Simulated scan of single mutants.
Amino acid sequence: MENIVLIIVLLFCLYTDVKSRRILNIITLPTILIGLTYYFFTQGFEGFLYSGKGLLVGLSLLIIPYLLGGMGAGDVKLMAAIGALMGTSFVFYSFIYTALIGGVIALLLIIKQRGFINSIKSLFFNVVFFRSSLGSMILPNGDKKSSISFPYGVAIVLGALSCLVWGGF
């Protein structure tokens, strides 16, 4: 049952994030409540704790990037909803898949915008001269207009689906 709810929630969030770059509370908050109540009624207080721990782990994995301005609150709530619905180990492995997929998407977008040769030159310069931040690859000369962003909900959805299909490591 929880797998079906997860897939439906992920597909709705994927659609809204791609279309409007928003993950809606009307999807994530009821999902959190569904997870908490489902596990409470099927497994009692232990089930409620199982779901609650998943919620807290999902929330804690993305709260720092959110507080630093790296992503929206909807992304954080989606990861918390995944945790409430699927538990701690699932949300943790989903996060790892999400980070890997998000990194690949970001790298492809950097290469697309700056060109392959410029990206390699910039990476080489940063590595050779021990620059403390590779951020100049994304924000050259601090120019916010040339920054690269993408709806991170896409990576979260793909990460959760990957975990659903392949499981943990």
Rank of each mutant, 00 (worst) to 15 (best):
G103I: 09
L56D: 08
L123M: 06
A99V: 15
L139I: 15
L161I: 05
R22I: 04
I105L: 12
F90D: 00
I96P: 07
S136Q: 13
Q113R: 15
G87T: 08
I156K: 07
S60Q: 11
S132H: 15
Q43M: 09
F95V: 01
Y93G: 02
N3L: 10
S133L: 09
V157G: 02
L10W: 04
G54P: 12
C13G: 02
S132M: 13
L123A: 06
V57G: 06
S149I: 12
G142W: 13
I4P: 04
D143W: 14
F45P: 03
S132G: 12
Y50C: 00
V9N: 02
R22W: 05
P140M: 02
L62W: 11
F12D: 00
A80S: 03
F150W: 10
Y93T: 10
Y39A: 03
L33K: 08
L24S: 01
V157A: 05
R21L: 04
G58N: 08
M71I: 05
L139M: 13
I111D: 05
A80Y: 03
E46D: 13
I138Y: 13
Y39G: 03
I117H: 15
I110V: 14
E46R: 14
L36V: 06
D143S: 05
A160G: 01
L134S: 01
K112A: 14
L14M: 01
I27D: 08
D75P: 09
F129S: 03
A80R: 04
V128K: 14
D17K: 05
G103C: 02
P65D: 06
L59V: 04
M86I: 07
S94V: 08
G74S: 01
M1N: 01
L100F: 15
A80M: 03
A84L: 02
S94P: 09
S149K: 11
L55C: 00
S94H: 09
C13E: 05
I4R: 05
S89N: 05
I105A: 10
D143P: 07
R21E: 11
